[in-house]
Design a protein around this nucleic acid. Structure first.
Length: 185
DNA sequence: TGCAATGCTTGTG
DNA sequence: CACAAGCATTGCA
């Protein structure tokens, strides 16, 4: 099984996106170029030389960022996720459509991996937040559509990462455009 | 507005 | 492989 990097230009405040692709699909996505949490052996992964595969990924993402595509429709390789983590991410992918948001607690409830909600959902919400932060499939698994019950919530990478979350939600029409909005529309 | 409750992921030894 | 630390939250007073 081979794995390789594809670099995709984006209008995101973070700049280009880096994706790790395999024969199965996209295995990981990084906003920060070379750092992906939870991806072992990420150093030494070669650039993708299969232009047909890289081209498809770039084309789909380009359309998405132009607002012409609401579903990426890219195959996902779940190899870097396991157990409850994978279940939650797959639940999110299946249930949070374009322009829709749900809360951490809600996702925890829907995923079915948390059985005890007698604490008011505290455990589920906190755990889901942790899972999102450890999500190697940002963007493909729409972790930016998961928000706190009383606001935007957080995002990996701190304040810098939050800009990305805001940008994506603006693209999808969840948030109103800001003055520095450089996306479509 | 401020506080207390917990489980999963990740980085070391 | 085992252990310890850190959180992308929530609901109630």
């Amino acid at each position: 099984m081979s794995i390789s990097w594809v670099t995709v230009p984006t209008p995101l405040p973070s700049g280009p996106l880096r994706l790790a692709v395999t024969e199965q699909g996209v295995a990981a996505v990084s906003y920060h170029g070379d750092a992906i949490g939870g991806v072992p052996g990420r150093v030494g992964i070669p650039e993708c030389v299969d232009e047909s595969r890289a081209g498809l990924v770039r084309a789909r993402l380009a359309e998405y960022f132009e607002g012409r595509r609401t579903e990426l429709g890219l195959p996902i390789d779940w190899r870097f996720t396991t157990g409850p983590h994978r279940t939650v991410l797959q639940t999110l992918t299946a249930q949070a459509g374009y322009g829709q948001t749900l809360t951490y607690g809600e996702l925890g409830a829907r995923s079915g991996v948390f059985e005890d909600f007698t604490d008011g959902g505290w455990t589920a919400a906190r755990t889901v937040g942790k899972m999102m932060g450890a999500n190697p499939l940002c963007l493909l698994v729409p972790c930016h559509r998961v928000v706190a019950s009383d606001g935007l919530g957080g995002f990996g990478g701190g304040p810098r990462g939050l800009e990305i979350k805001r940008w994506l939600l603006t693209l999808e029409g969840v948030l109103p455009p800001t003055l520095d909005w450089n996306g479509p529309g």
